[in-house]
């Protein structure tokens, strides 16, 4: 099953987030996770030999439904990408500020808060 590949990619990203010590690599791990989810969404909407989901004049709703790929996951992916962009930009900004304060990207050295 091709969906399993998405799950594997998701787990690769999760492994990256959990195991890496470098802030930037952590952020890359997050990116991989999001890509895996986005790919999964696109695959959910995919249909073999499907057309692009654009309604032309003269096409009824039924014909559209039977012929085209599902447009909803595509809209969802677009939204998810925008959100992901915001999160990653914020993450990178915070990582850069952390670097200014601590002089390192290593999370094992950035540990002031405990308890």
């Amino acid at each position: 099953m091709i969906y399993v590949l998405c799950l594997i990619l998701f787990l690769v990203g999760l492994y990256g987030v959990l195991s890496q010590k470098n802030l930037i690599k952590l952020i890359i791990g997050l990116g991989i996770m999001e890509y895996a989810v986005n790919m999964f969404l696109i695959m959910v909407g995919y249909r073999k030999d499907g057309k692009a989901p654009i309604m032309e004049s003269g096409t009824g709703l039924d014909k559209f439904l039977s012929g085209a790929v599902d447009p909803l996951p595509q809209a969802m992916v677009l939204t998810a990408i925008v959100i992901n962009l915001a999160v990653l930009a914020l993450a990178i900004a915070i990582a850069m500020r952390l670097y200014q304060k601590y002089g390192t990207y290593d999370i094992t050295e950035i540990r002031r808060l405990r308890g």
Binding site: V82, A93, Q100
Partner: peptide
């Protein structure tokens, strides 16, 4: 909105001095 946000994100991130 998207054009300006992306430009600002790119510009600000690329122009921060790292040791200032």
């Amino acid at each position: 909105k998207v054009c300006m946000s992306l430009f600002l994100v790119f510009f600000i991130l690329s122009s921060v001095r790292m040791f200032g």
